[in-house]
Design a binder for these strands. Structure first.
Lengths: 157, 157
DNA sequence: CCTTTATTGATAATGATTATCATATTCAAT
DNA sequence: ATTGAATATGATAATCATTATCAATAAAGG
């Protein structure tokens, strides 16, 4: 259940005011849904979840809000090869650890992993620095994904 | 210009026969287009290029063939955040070096880079091995992409 | 209370990709 | 060469996630 009257406001409250945006009920509801799952929700998933609590919120608002949240860097948008886009609260948010994804190309299962992240971060940091200099490219984000077959799908021919 | 009568056939000829597929004119034309560009073509780009030489080839065949080529691992399919999928001849093919991408989120420009690839490969190898064991996941592919602003787009507010 | 601006939702439009299905092509065996 | 089975093709229509439109609401600040 969403608790707008929370003492001290949820941590993201200020981010909105600072940008001239309003933290409305639909927006907060979407953030609430995202903050309470470890799955990788599509726009429709989020719509359905929000709908249970606030049936008046339309799908259009979901898309619009997600776009806003991505732009504010509160949310990451992923493409895992099925058609729909998937959304996830940004790392650093609450207790979410930086992670990457294993994507099963057969059943679509997605596994988050945090192992090797430290090494990866180290390498990526160097790489980003080098690339930034060489190409004069301002890197704001990166994606690492491994594709393959999960354990279950390997035993299916 | 496509040269079907090339001595010794293009290198990919055998890959088709081996799978029971036929190396037809449209398929060869598509591979030919892909092998002669360093850009990241969309299905429509490829359609237009093939169309100049073989106007009879339809867009459906382009999509179908690309799907086949991706499945045969001769071609990689990428999503750079604009809507259309982009295709690229697989590494190891001819003289193509393993590389990753910088994607400008503003103008869509894509920069291939091969620097740091060796270090990345080393790390990715370790990571893949570790992840494979831990999750019993058979990794066949990976993607690394950096997003940000290219030099030109940084000077635009 | 009033004015301005931000936000929303229903609906229609978009556009890349897929499905359908009848036709054409290829290969191998006769 | 000819035939027959399997593969490949192209025109067309359908799909479906995402966007655009636009009138209606809600909030903030005087």
């Amino acid at each position: 259940m969403l608790d707008r009257a929370n003492i001290g406001h949820p941590w993201w409250h200020g981010r909105f005011r600072g940008c001239g945006y309003r933290l409305t009920i639909p927006r907060e509801a979407i953030l609430d849904v995202l903050s309470k799952t470890s799955r990788h929700l599509s726009a429709e998933d989020i719509f359905l979840a929000v709908h249970k609590v606030y049936p008046a919120v339309g799908l259009t608002t979901i898309y619009r809000t997600l776009e806003l949240l991505v732009q504010m860097r509160l949310v990451f948008k992923f493409d895992f090869g099925d058609k729909r886009a998937r959304y996830e609260l940004a790392e650093g948010t609450k207790g979410i650890r930086h992670h990457h994804h294993l994507v099963c190309t057969r059943c679509g299962r997605i596994i988050d992993y945090t192992d090797f992240i430290d090494e990866e971060k180290e390498l990526l940091g160097q790489t980003e620095k080098g690339l930034s200099k060489k190409f004069n490219f301002k890197i704001t984000n990166h994606i690492i994904q491994f594709y393959g077959l999960c354990d279950k799908c390997q035993n299916k021919g």
